[in-house]
Measured scan of single mutants.
Amino acid sequence: RELEAFAERFKQRRIKLGVTQADVGSALANLKIPGVGSLSQSTICRFESLTLSHNNMIALKPILQAWLEEAEGAQREKMNKP
């Protein structure tokens, strides 16, 4: 249940930020998480549509959570600048 809720929230917030699935995939490489490079657009799509295996969903959740927090933080900074 929690994974499904996160996937839905992730998709809504990604769209609100105006970021494509492909952008998310390539931006993950910038997070410098050990062992994590970029991901394909189709992987992000399959995460959002819950068609990845349960284990893959569990593995990707903290990575996508980290990206989302960073992206939303950058958005807030941009909006707070005069």
Rank of each mutant, 00 (worst) to 15 (best):
R1M: 12
R1E: 12
E2W: 02
E2V: 03
L3H: 05
E4C: 06
E4Y: 06
E4D: 10
E4S: 08
A5Q: 14
A5K: 14
A7Y: 01
A7T: 06
A7M: 03
E8L: 13
E8Y: 11
E8V: 13
R9T: 14
F10D: 01
K11T: 11
K11A: 10
K11G: 02
Q12I: 06
Q12A: 12
R13C: 03
R13E: 08
R13L: 06
R13K: 09
R13P: 00
R14N: 00
R14Y: 00
R14I: 00
R14L: 01
R14F: 00
I15P: 00
I15N: 07
I15Y: 03
K16C: 12
K16D: 13
K16E: 15
K16I: 07
K16H: 10
L17N: 02
L17W: 03
L17K: 02
L17H: 02
G18M: 01
V19Q: 15
V19I: 11
T20V: 02
T20R: 08
Q21F: 08
Q21N: 02
Q21V: 08
A22P: 15
A22G: 11
A22N: 15
A22E: 14
A22Y: 14
A22S: 09
A22I: 05
D23Y: 07
D23A: 11
D23G: 08
D23S: 10
D23T: 07
D23R: 05
V24Q: 01
V24E: 01
V24R: 01
V24G: 00
V24A: 04
S26R: 12
S26C: 10
S26N: 15
A27M: 05
L28M: 08
L28I: 11
L28E: 01
L28W: 02
L28D: 01
N30Q: 13
L31D: 06
L31F: 11
K32S: 15
K32A: 12
K32G: 07
K32L: 07
P34Q: 10
P34N: 06
P34E: 13
G35T: 15
G35W: 03
G35E: 09
V36F: 02
G37M: 06
G37H: 09
G37R: 07
G37I: 07
S38T: 10
S38C: 05
L39Y: 04
S40E: 08
S40W: 03
S40G: 09
S40C: 11
Q41V: 09
Q41G: 12
Q41C: 10
S42F: 05
S42H: 06
S42T: 13
T43D: 08
T43M: 14
T43C: 07
T43Q: 07
T43N: 05
I44Y: 00
I44S: 01
I44N: 02
I44W: 01
C45L: 08
C45T: 15
C45D: 06
C45E: 14
C45R: 14
R46I: 00
R46T: 02
R46N: 14
R46A: 15
F47M: 02
F47Y: 04
F47R: 00
E48M: 00
E48N: 00
E48F: 00
S49A: 12
S49I: 02
S49W: 02
L50S: 13
L50K: 13
L50A: 14
L50R: 13
T51E: 14
T51H: 12
T51F: 03
T51A: 11
L52Y: 01
L52S: 02
S53G: 10
S53M: 03
S53Y: 06
S53V: 03
H54K: 12
N55G: 14
N55L: 11
N56V: 15
N56K: 13
N56D: 11
N56C: 15
M57H: 03
M57F: 04
M57V: 04
M57I: 06
M57Y: 04
I58R: 15
I58D: 06
A59N: 04
A59I: 11
A59D: 09
A59L: 10
L60W: 02
L60V: 10
L60G: 01
L60N: 05
K61N: 03
P62L: 02
P62F: 02
I63W: 08
I63Y: 12
I63H: 12
I63N: 05
L64V: 03
L64F: 03
L64P: 01
Q65I: 07
Q65M: 09
A66G: 10
A66K: 14
A66I: 06
A66N: 11
A66Y: 07
W67M: 02
W67H: 02
W67V: 03
L68Y: 04
L68G: 01
L68W: 01
L68M: 07
E69A: 11
E69K: 10
E69F: 05
E70R: 09
E70I: 06
E70H: 08
A71L: 05
A71G: 03
A71R: 09
E72D: 04
E72H: 02
G73R: 09
G73F: 09
G73C: 11
G73A: 13
A74L: 12
A74M: 11
A74P: 09
A74I: 12
Q75H: 14
Q75P: 08
R76C: 13
R76W: 09
R76T: 12
R76P: 12
E77A: 09
E77S: 10
E77V: 12
E77C: 08
E77Q: 11
K78P: 09
K78E: 14
K78M: 15
M79I: 12
M79G: 13
M79Q: 10
M79W: 11
M79S: 10
N80G: 12
N80Y: 10
N80K: 12
N80A: 15
K81P: 08
K81A: 15
K81G: 13
K81Y: 05
K81F: 15
P82S: 11
P82Y: 15
P82E: 12
P82M: 12
P82A: 15
P82T: 12
